[in-house]
Design a protein around this nucleic acid. Structure first.
Lengths: 343, 343
DNA sequence: TTAAATAATTAACGCGCGTAAATTTTAAGT
DNA sequence: ACTTAAAATTTACGCGCGTTAATTATTTAA
């Protein structure tokens, strides 16, 4: 058993009988030393419990092994899940993820990039706000530290983007809704900052045209991040005023749908595809709570894990080669239809 | 405008005309230098945009100004909200919070404390698992770094605990339920790792006795963190089998209640206090999603902000005085009844 | 104005580790 | 056994900043 705490690598070198430069090599990359030495070091490690000083290490390395992960709002389970997936991918690759939430405020997104700059991360995985983001700040940041965007595309900015194919997934659910009942109206917030929202509206228009139906888009006021609240109040208003042209509503995202379902319930409107139901509501994202709504929400599932892993591995590729991508890459994953009771 | 990037404090000293030790003092505590020098420094700062190297700073300081914040699961909006409050309190006090989630796994809690050790934080704010936590590890950690527990009490461990008064809040909702209808049955998981769950059960028993009713506790199997799932499957089973002795159920927490509400809906059981309702369901915590359930969930709200601020300020007090508390402190905040439609 | 108190400067060391160059040891191949 | 390539060791410097002691400058009080 190792006793007194070892204060530095020097002392660990003394007790382990291995020179400090060799130890330094080992901690930077265990495979860079001969197997026999590696074993001796690891044996000593179990015996003496020494760990290099993080701050001293990072001061001297040209690049740290930190990776910044920035998401718009950790209070949204969608982002906490995808953030988690990204974290896991970083850890698996031997990096230390630093997860930062922008708490729904674009100004915080800038602040987060600023904080990250001080931490000299090797790279950054960024789920940005979109229009509300400070595009210049992101581009400037990307000049110093490679940034891979995920979930929200910042056209042209960042080294790469990984997200969901909104056109494919909207088409998928529109087709399902048309086939199984009335063609859907589209429900969204008037000024969506998220770029996916705009893609989805566009995709809805195209899909409806393709299927030969007239599109009906309902945009409601509402700022900020309280989607459920907007879905409930504004969605409820639309329902009770009979504003929807058909009995089917496709919401721009699940959180709006969750609020709208709550409103429908309060209004005594039965939602679902059963004979006794008067309207259908569908969402997009497969939010973690969507399976527990009343009724459970039919939606399009994004492939969280695939997006997270692809974004991470793209960044690792940049870091490993130490060269920026020859050209910007975009990877889109397909959404999957999740049929539940609401539509 | 300052041009070429300043590489270190030396260079900033040169261009700003202020000696490096004075700059060092300033960055450690702006108030430690004369007002006139402070103004000169700040003028130079706006001009030259220099920031001390985080790693070099932290290597040399005996204590960093980092504060570790550990919560059991960021995917749970309850913890992401209270974690956010704690973060804000740290920032306001000039510390840098480092938020870590244990992702529902007690082993990760240990791992998080381990990671934190490497970051040499000034203090730690810990929302632990409870029984599943590694009590020894926490106590050992607390020897090196002051830890203040919040949300979940680890009896005797840590410098202080800040949480909700479960006895007061359970009594409050039990009284409300009894007064407004049938006395409640109690619904929980069989092996709750969270210490609040045990307190709540105990509080339920006492409250029922105080109000002269026979208690009915229903414990269901289920592991892990998927409370909604357990609430839905097991809660649904109990409802459909008519296992509840009264028409009113008090759930150990909101997430169980959310699942149970979903199950009730699926079973066609109308929940609420209306004339056409057959059962009432209540929860505890005022989960962010509870206002959007069908029907909206009657529950007990914890005072997130008060708990977070009290926990943080207790820690700051320890850090400022550089002395551990003479004796362990416990602060409990009262819960508030949130009456919605479900009970 | 002067003495005393306060603040800033200069000079220098140390923190723990990365890293490079020169040297010695070890392992592999003949 | 001997040659060679590979790996480890020794020695030494530098990173950017905290910090201290001795000195000088500035402010405040008298």
């Amino acid at each position: 058993m190792g006793q007194q705490k070892l204060r530095n690598m020097e002392e660990f070198a003394a007790v382990s009988g291995i020179s400090r430069p060799t130890l330094s090599k080992y901690f930077n990359d265990p495979d860079s030393v001969r197997r026999s030495t590696r074993q001796r070091i690891e044996a000593a490690l179990t015996k003496y419990d020494y760990r290099p000083n993080v701050y001293a290490v990072n001061q001297n390395r040209r690049r740290t092994r930190n990776i910044g992960v920035v998401v718009p709002n950790l209070a949204d389970p969608f982002f906490s899940e995808i953030g988690r997936e990204v974290e896991l991918a970083c850890i698996a690759a031997g990096y230390s993820p630093i997860l930062l939430s922008s708490h729904g405020k674009p100004s915080q997104e800038r602040a987060n990039l600023d904080s990250l700059r001080a931490l000299k991360p090797a790279g950054v995985l960024l789920a940005a706000f979109g229009k509300a983001s400070d595009r210049d700040a992101i581009e400037r940041f990307n000049e110093d530290v490679p940034v891979v965007a995920f979930d929200a595309n910042i056209e042209g900015a960042c080294e790469a983007f990984v997200g969901t194919d909104n056109f494919q997934s909207v088409d998928l659910i529109v087709e399902y809704l048309c086939r199984s009942g009335a063609p859907p109206c589209f429900f969204e917030m008037k000024t969506p900052s998220n770029p996916n929202a705009n893609k989805r509206r566009q995709a809805y228009l195209e899909a409806m045209e393709r299927h030969g139906h007239a599109p009906h888009i309902h945009q409601v006021p509402g700022e900020g991040w309280d989607f459920e609240e907007v879905g409930m109040t504004e969605g409820g208003r639309l329902i009770s005023s009979g504003a929807f042209e058909t009995n089917t509503v496709l919401c721009s995202n699940d959180r709006l749908a969750i609020g709208m379902l709550s409103a429908a319930y309060g209004l005594g409107v039965k939602v679902g595809h059963g004979a006794d139901c008067t309207m259908r509501i569908a969402g997009q994202d497969d939010h973690p709570f969507s399976r527990y709504t009343c009724p459970p929400l039919t939606t399009i599932a994004q492939d969280y894990a695939a997006i997270a892993n692809q974004a991470a591995s793209t960044l690792f590729r940049i870091l490993d080669t130490e060269t920026r991508l020859a050209e910007r890459e975009e990877t889109l994953f397909e959404g999957k239809l999740v049929m539940r009771a609401s539509a």
